[in-house]
Amino acid sequence: MAIIGNPKYEERINHHLAKYETKRSAVMPLLFIAQEEYGWVNPAGVEEVAQILNLDPTQVKSIAGFYTMYSEKPKGKYWLHVCTDLPCALKGADEFYAWLKEELGVAEGGTSDDGMFTVEHVMCLAACDKAPMLQCNFRYVENLDQDKMRELLAKWRQEAAEPVSAGV
Protein backbone atom coordinates (compact mmCIF):
# COMPACT_ATOMS: atom_id res chain seq x y z
CA MET A 1 0.00 0.00 0.00
CA ALA A 2 0.91 3.63 -0.09
CA ILE A 3 0.73 6.14 2.73
CA ILE A 4 -1.01 8.75 0.57
CA GLY A 5 -4.70 8.02 0.53
CA ASN A 6 -4.31 5.19 3.03
CA PRO A 7 -7.12 5.54 5.59
CA LYS A 8 -4.86 3.96 8.20
CA TYR A 9 -2.64 7.05 8.26
CA GLU A 10 -4.91 9.86 7.15
CA GLU A 11 -5.76 11.18 10.58
CA ARG A 12 -2.19 11.01 11.83
CA ILE A 13 -0.80 12.74 8.75
CA ASN A 14 -3.34 15.54 9.07
CA HIS A 15 -2.56 15.91 12.78
CA HIS A 16 1.13 16.37 12.01
CA LEU A 17 0.48 18.78 9.17
CA ALA A 18 -1.72 20.90 11.44
CA LYS A 19 0.67 21.06 14.34
CA TYR A 20 3.53 23.00 12.76
CA GLU A 21 3.92 26.43 11.16
CA THR A 22 5.49 24.94 8.05
CA LYS A 23 4.83 21.75 6.12
CA ARG A 24 8.49 20.95 6.17
CA SER A 25 8.41 20.49 9.95
CA ALA A 26 6.31 17.38 9.47
CA VAL A 27 9.07 15.53 7.64
CA MET A 28 10.21 13.52 10.68
CA PRO A 29 6.79 12.21 11.77
CA LEU A 30 5.93 11.43 8.16
CA LEU A 31 9.15 9.47 7.70
CA PHE A 32 8.16 7.38 10.73
CA ILE A 33 4.83 6.70 9.08
CA ALA A 34 6.55 5.69 5.83
CA GLN A 35 8.83 3.38 7.78
CA GLU A 36 5.86 1.85 9.53
CA GLU A 37 4.11 1.17 6.23
CA TYR A 38 7.04 -0.19 4.24
CA GLY A 39 9.19 -1.64 7.03
CA TRP A 40 12.00 0.72 6.07
CA VAL A 41 12.41 4.13 4.48
CA ASN A 42 12.29 2.99 0.86
CA PRO A 43 12.34 5.20 -2.26
CA ALA A 44 8.55 4.99 -2.62
CA GLY A 45 8.10 6.26 0.95
CA VAL A 46 10.58 9.07 0.38
CA GLU A 47 8.69 10.10 -2.79
CA GLU A 48 5.38 10.16 -0.99
CA VAL A 49 6.67 12.17 1.96
CA ALA A 50 8.25 14.63 -0.46
CA GLN A 51 5.00 14.90 -2.39
CA ILE A 52 2.92 15.56 0.73
CA LEU A 53 5.33 18.26 1.92
CA ASN A 54 6.18 19.82 -1.46
CA LEU A 55 9.84 18.99 -0.92
CA ASP A 56 12.42 17.55 -3.22
CA PRO A 57 12.90 13.80 -2.61
CA THR A 58 16.65 14.35 -2.17
CA GLN A 59 15.93 16.71 0.74
CA VAL A 60 13.72 14.10 2.38
CA LYS A 61 16.34 11.44 1.79
CA SER A 62 19.05 13.52 3.44
CA ILE A 63 16.88 13.91 6.54
CA ALA A 64 16.28 10.16 6.64
CA GLY A 65 20.02 9.57 6.34
CA PHE A 66 20.90 11.92 9.19
CA TYR A 67 19.01 10.03 11.90
CA THR A 68 19.74 6.52 13.11
CA MET A 69 16.13 5.51 13.77
CA TYR A 70 15.24 5.57 10.09
CA SER A 71 16.49 2.56 8.19
CA GLU A 72 17.43 3.04 4.57
CA LYS A 73 17.57 -0.66 3.94
CA PRO A 74 15.21 -3.54 4.72
CA LYS A 75 15.87 -5.28 8.00
CA GLY A 76 14.66 -8.26 9.97
CA LYS A 77 11.28 -8.42 11.61
CA TYR A 78 12.73 -7.48 14.98
CA TRP A 79 15.27 -4.71 15.32
CA LEU A 80 17.39 -5.27 18.38
CA HIS A 81 19.25 -2.13 19.44
CA VAL A 82 21.60 -3.10 22.23
CA CYS A 83 23.08 -0.30 24.30
CA THR A 84 26.84 -0.71 24.72
CA ASP A 85 27.55 2.80 25.93
CA LEU A 86 29.77 3.31 28.99
CA PRO A 87 27.31 2.82 31.91
CA CYS A 88 25.82 -0.29 30.34
CA ALA A 89 29.28 -1.56 29.42
CA LEU A 90 30.32 -1.21 33.07
CA LYS A 91 27.58 -3.74 33.77
CA GLY A 92 28.56 -6.26 31.12
CA ALA A 93 26.80 -4.93 28.02
CA ASP A 94 29.76 -5.54 25.68
CA GLU A 95 29.93 -9.20 26.71
CA PHE A 96 26.14 -9.48 26.47
CA TYR A 97 26.14 -8.00 22.98
CA ALA A 98 28.98 -10.27 21.83
CA TRP A 99 27.06 -13.28 23.15
CA LEU A 100 23.83 -12.16 21.44
CA LYS A 101 25.55 -11.80 18.07
CA GLU A 102 26.98 -15.29 18.44
CA GLU A 103 23.66 -16.73 19.57
CA LEU A 104 22.02 -15.34 16.42
CA GLY A 105 25.02 -16.00 14.17
CA VAL A 106 25.23 -12.41 12.97
CA ALA A 107 27.77 -9.63 12.85
CA GLU A 108 27.17 -6.00 13.87
CA GLY A 109 24.29 -4.62 11.81
CA GLY A 110 23.51 -8.03 10.37
CA THR A 111 20.26 -9.95 10.07
CA SER A 112 19.80 -13.54 11.20
CA ASP A 113 19.45 -16.14 8.42
CA ASP A 114 15.76 -16.63 9.10
CA GLY A 115 15.23 -12.90 8.48
CA MET A 116 13.97 -12.52 12.01
CA PHE A 117 16.49 -10.37 13.90
CA THR A 118 18.68 -7.41 12.93
CA VAL A 119 21.15 -6.47 15.65
CA GLU A 120 22.98 -3.21 16.17
CA HIS A 121 24.73 -1.59 19.09
CA VAL A 122 23.55 1.89 20.02
CA MET A 123 24.52 4.73 22.33
CA CYS A 124 22.87 5.49 25.68
CA LEU A 125 19.11 4.87 25.69
CA ALA A 126 18.37 6.50 29.06
CA ALA A 127 18.08 3.20 30.90
CA CYS A 128 21.57 2.95 32.36
CA ASP A 129 20.36 1.71 35.76
CA LYS A 130 18.76 -1.31 34.08
CA ALA A 131 21.71 -2.70 32.12
CA PRO A 132 22.17 -4.78 30.10
CA MET A 133 19.26 -3.53 28.05
CA LEU A 134 18.04 -3.07 24.51
CA GLN A 135 15.15 -1.78 22.50
CA CYS A 136 13.27 -4.28 20.37
CA ASN A 137 11.38 -2.42 17.64
CA PHE A 138 11.91 0.63 19.83
CA ARG A 139 10.31 -0.92 22.90
CA TYR A 140 12.37 -1.03 26.09
CA VAL A 141 13.57 -4.43 27.29
CA GLU A 142 15.62 -4.02 30.45
CA ASN A 143 17.59 -5.86 33.14
CA LEU A 144 18.62 -8.59 30.72
CA ASP A 145 20.78 -11.66 31.06
CA GLN A 146 21.42 -14.59 28.74
CA ASP A 147 18.60 -16.74 30.11
CA LYS A 148 16.04 -13.99 29.84
CA MET A 149 17.24 -13.15 26.36
CA ARG A 150 16.98 -16.74 25.17
CA GLU A 151 13.38 -16.85 26.38
CA LEU A 152 12.58 -13.59 24.63
CA LEU A 153 14.12 -14.74 21.35
CA ALA A 154 12.02 -17.88 21.51
CA LYS A 155 8.91 -15.88 22.30
CA TRP A 156 9.51 -13.45 19.44
CA ARG A 157 10.13 -16.30 17.02
CA GLN A 158 6.81 -17.78 18.05
CA GLU A 159 5.00 -14.47 17.67
CA ALA A 160 6.53 -13.97 14.26
CA ALA A 161 3.66 -15.85 12.67
CA GLU A 162 1.49 -12.85 13.54
CA PRO A 163 2.16 -9.57 11.72
CA VAL A 164 4.33 -7.15 13.68
CA SER A 165 5.39 -3.87 12.15
CA ALA A 166 8.89 -2.60 12.58
CA GLY A 167 9.12 1.00 13.55
CA VAL A 168 7.03 3.34 15.64
Binding site: K19, Y20, S25, M28, P29, L31, F32, F66, Y67, T68, M69, Y70, V122, M123, V168
Partner: peptide, 10 residues
Protein backbone atom coordinates in the same frame (compact mmCIF):
# COMPACT_ATOMS: atom_id res chain seq x y z
CA UNK B 1 1.05 22.22 23.39
CA UNK B 2 2.51 19.68 20.96
CA UNK B 3 4.99 16.81 21.04
CA UNK B 4 7.63 16.13 18.42
CA UNK B 5 9.78 13.03 18.09
CA UNK B 6 13.45 13.08 17.19
CA UNK B 7 14.88 10.05 15.45
CA UNK B 8 18.19 9.17 17.03
CA UNK B 9 20.81 11.93 17.07
CA UNK B 10 22.46 13.15 20.28
Amino acid sequence: VYTHLGAGAY
